[in-house]
Write a protein that binds this DNA or RNA. Structure first.
Length: 850
RNA sequence: GCGGACGUGGUGAAAUUGGUAAACACAACGGACUUAAAAUCCGUCGGCCCGAAUGGGCCUUGCCGGUUCAAGCCCGGCCGUCCGCACCA
């Protein structure tokens, strides 16, 4: 008689058994023996308070890999912790009057309980939250090390100010002119800020991308573009007339197109260029022009539509090669933040320069001739030509290719002592000051006598004050005079603490190495780098770039032995969990569990109101299309939730959550149980031998699943499981007991990576010893993977006309003879001339007839 | 504008060295069991056509062309969708 698998009973039971046996603890290196290490990590969560399906999918994926490696005999580190500083805790404090720390730790407790129910193979002994004083104290020590190494500095600069969150944002955190979290339009403010010298590593960060062959190309490309290395020439144009005071040497510009120097028509300065600013002090018209430029927004659309505008300064400079003068303009499209904040314009070969030149009637001199054009007649209309061609109209450069001309022009400028070859980056230094309470305090003091003084490590951690109030906007640390006042470690005089805290991205830039161990220990060296990292692609340039910088800085500060400097050897970016959206005619979003779908057109259960089915979108609170993991676990079990998020779509793509799909996964779990439950007690899986279809299928399935997991094709691995279980069910009558037992023993050990509780229940039903979560991956008999006879498709002129059975070791001639002797095939040849027979052993036969 | 990814049945998708397109699942339909329902099990399921039938033929991976004995996969050109960056000299 058959029983049903009951996840509500089985899941807690097995989790307790795992806990008792402490099966997920990573072994320290000295206990690992010959086992290779595998550090598997998913991006640690922000403790918002509730788990969502996206978490389930993310951590289920990491768990598949961690469990698979464990089964293969690796010493696995699979830790979990909390990215716990940040704005939401302060928002909660303002709204609910609860202390950010209290709110955060309560959320952590809630989410940890939810995590526990998922049955992940996590080593909780290494858990920490970034808001633990022990953690942020170590971070402060790192800060001091970096400071001493000259990797941190303070400067006044224009910064991105988020008026809603009342804090500064890094360039990476400004998306489309808006704060990445608040969505408020970002303002520019002049503030004194702390910066990490990430630009020191710009070249190394680009070079390192080469070695990351287990990263998605997309992420590597995004990082390379973000760093934005460009090679070119930095040079000065000397004044033709009176030099402005302080600029006697000329105007410094940067260009990547020195080959077009003969096409130079004017010089353009940024409105924020120091020279512009200085001239504007006694030139009202210029000052007004600068104000006009500042009005244009920074959003995509604003820039797209913004007209090129300019202001003629009246100054002129000398062309470096020719006896002519160029006017100096101020132009709104020249950015102060890139290069030198000044350019030379060659309108013929740059669209922006051309637009500007046409508007202000400046000269347009083509110097690159596209192939097929005649130098005498070639003209530039409204489109600048930026393509390949030959240099002409260009003195000694004439006739050269663009590349040769660049080299020659740079050489000429260098020998004239006007400039030199330079590399420029789009990447800026990382501004880390945040005017917030709930973050890591920066461990320095401001002393009237000594200036900025770093604290000695003995005074760490600099703890956040417990007593805070959020009744007025701004930074509570700024108002906390008790906390602020301190003595200067250098002179002993009165000093004030730094009230800025660190960007929370600093916290997540080194947590993975803290999981490995504290300090620069042998254990940290053993585990690092992370072998497989799993997380969302939204961190492609934020977290993942900062972390790569941090490992390099930690290495150079003597805090980490990691020669290559790369923290994550393998990276996998997973897709999101989506769901249909539902809306009433009144425009209210309706959640899936308020919906009645049973009778044709969907309605709201409570009111009977008609509902329109909308687009499939990422699960979000605002669209109310979320499904709560707790509800799913209560109803179907954690295994089913995990299995479904992995089964329907490739892991890098989005998966659509559907009720019927989840029910399908639940049915599968029952089918698996039925297969085990139908097996008579006492069958010996190790007694299976010989060669038959069932054994071949079992061994082949293990091979397929293994390959699919290694290639991150979890959906294909799950499909193989389905196929295998379906066949096993059919084989219940007729197959040898031992062969069925072997199949089940293998199956339980494959299932464990996806549905560990179910696998454990099945393993126990088999009467196998120990826990399946500790069982080794099934050993495949290679003899059962090779076929004695193969069925080859036979094509005639590329169209399949039949099949033929041949011995697996048959050579080309033998196969050809067999094919030609086959009556079904020869019917298709029908007296035509056989021109050629192509035999691809083990694959296909194609007969070409004329 | 620049860079990248993708486009296959009603749906999610397989086909990871150029070699049988549509595995597996969802939905749908038909049937069995049942007083009934649920659950479960069995079957059909890309399109068009021929045949009473076992069966057979033609077409089909966004569109057009190319390479090849053979193309979903390689090359060229379009169209469309999504993502990232964006006045970066």
């Amino acid at each position: 008689m058959s029983t049903r698998y009951n996840p509500q009973d089985a899941e807690p039971k097995w989790r307790e058994a795992w806990d008792k046996a402490d099966v997920y603890r990573a072994k320290p290196p000295e206990e690992a023996g010959d086992a290779p290490k595998a550090y598997i990590l998913e991006m640690f969560p922000y403790p918002s308070g509730r788990l969502h399906m996206g978490h389930v999918r993310n951590y289920a994926m990491g768990d598949v890999i961690a469990r698979f490696r464990k089964a293969q005999g690796y010493n696995v580190l699979h830790p979990m912790g909390w990215d716990a500083f940040g704005m939401p805790a302060e928002n909660a404090a303002m709204k609910q009057g609860v202390h950010p720390g209290e709110w955060t730790y309560k959320n952590i407790a809630d989410m940890r309980a939810q995590f526990m129910k998922l049955g992940l193979s996590l080593d909780w002994s290494r858990e920490f939250a970034t808001c633990d004083p022990e953690y942020y104290g170590s971070q402060q020590a790192l800060f001091l090390d970096f400071y001493e190494k000259g990797l941190i500095y303070r400067k006044a600069s224009k910064v991105n100010w988020d008026p809603v969150d009342q804090t500064v944002l890094a360039n990476e955190q400004v998306i489309d002119g808006k704060g990445w979290r608040s969505g408020a339009p970002v303002e520019q403010r002049e503030l004194t800020q702390w910066f990490f010298k990430i630009t020191d590593y710009a070249d190394d960060l680009i070079a390192g991308l080469e070695s990351l062959d287990r990263w998605p190309d997309k992420v590597r490309t995004m990082q390379a573009n973000w760093i934005g290395r460009s090679e070119g020439l930095q040079m000065r144009f000397e004044w033709a007339g009176q030099a402005p005071a302080g600029y006697e040497g000329g105007v410094e510009i940067f260009t990547t197109r020195p080959d077009t120097l003969y096409g130079a028509s004017f010089i353009a300065l940024s409105p924020d260029h120091p020279l512009t600013v200085e001239m504007a002090t006694d030139n009202e018209a210029l000052e007004a022009f600068r104000a006009d430029c500042a009005k244009v927004g920074t959003s995509e659309e604003a820039i797209e539509k913004a007209e090129k505008i300019g202001f003629d300064t009246g100054l002129t400079v000398k062309h470096p090669f020719e006896d002519r003068e160029l006017p100096v303009w101020v132009a709104n499209f020249v950015l102060m933040g890139y290069g030198t904040g000044a350019i030379f314009a060659c309108p013929a070969h740059d669209q922006r320069d051309l637009d500007f030149a046409r508007k202000y009637d400046l000269s347009v001199i083509p110097v690159v001739l596209p192939s097929g054009e005649d130098a005498a007649t070639y003209e530039i209309g409204k489109e600048a030509f930026a393509g390949p061609g030959r240099i002409y109209n260009s003195g000694v450069l004439t006739g050269k290719s663009i590349e040769d001309a660049k080299a020659a022009a740079i050489e000429a400028i260098e020998s004239a002592c006007l400039g030199s070859r330079t590399v420029n980056y789009r990447l800026r230094d990382w501004g880390v000051s945040r005017q917030r309470y709930w973050g890591c305090p920066i461990p320095v003091v401001h002393c009237d006598t000594c200036g900025i003084v770093p604290l000695p490590k003995s005074e760490l951690p600099v703890r956040l004050p417990d007593e805070v109030s959020f009744d007025i906007p701004g930074n509570p640390l700024e108002r906390d005079t008790d906390w602020k006042s301190c003595t200067c470690p250098k002179c002993g005089g009165v000093a004030t603490r730094e009230t800025d805290t660190l960007d929370t991205f600093v916290d997540s830039s080194w947590y993975y190495s803290r999981f490995a161990s504290e300090g620069n220990s042998a254990e940290r060296t053993y585990w690092m780098p992370v072998d497989q990292y799993v997380g969302g692609v939204e961190h492609a340039v934020l977290h993942l770039l900062y972390a790569r910088f941090f490992t390099r800085a930690m290495r150079d500060a003597g805090q980490l032995d990691l020669p290559g400097g790369e923290p994550f050897a393998g990276l996998f970016t997973q897709g999101m969990v989506t769901h249909e959206t539902y809306k009433t005619d009144a425009g209210d979003w309706i959640s899936p569990d308020e919906l009645n779908l049973s009778n044709g057109s969907p309605t709201v259960k409570a009111t009977g109101e008609a509902v329109t089915i909308g687009a499939i979108e990422k699960m979000s609170k605002s669209k109310r299309n979320t499904v709560d993991p707790d509800d799913i676990i209560a109803r179907y079990g954690a295994d089913v939730a995990r299995l479904f998020t992995l089964s329907d779509s490739p892991p890098e793509r989005d998966v659509e959550w559907t009720q019927s799909g989840v029910e399908g996964a639940a049915r599968f779990a029952q089918r698996v149980w039925a297969v085990f439950d139908a097996l008579p007690y006492g069958a010996d899986p190790t007694a299976a031998n010989g060669d038959n279809d069932l054994r071949r299928l079992s061994h082949k399935s293990v091979a397929n699943i293994q390959e699919a997991i290694e290639g991150f094709r979890f959906n294909s691995a799950v499909a193989s499981l389905y196929e295998w279980v379906n066949a096993l069910k059919k084989a219940e009558s007729g197959a040898d007991l031992e062969d069925r037992a072997e199949a089940c023993s293998f199956l339980a050990r494959c299932l464990v990576v996806f549905t560990p509780h179910l696998a454990e229940e099945c393993w126990s039903r088999l009467g196998a010893s120990g826990l399946v979560v500790e069982a080794p991956w099934p050993e495949i008999d290679p003899k059962l993977l090779v076929q004695d006879t193969l069925t080859l498709p036979v094509q005639v002129n590329g169209k399949k006309r039949g099949e033929i059975n041949v011995p697996a070791d048959a050579g080309g001639d033998v196969i050809e003879a067999l094919v030609m002797a086959d009556s079904a095939i020869s019917a298709h040849l029908d007296g035509k001339t056989v021109k050629k027979v192509i035999v691809v052993p083990k694959r296909i036969v194609n007969i070409v007839v004329g």
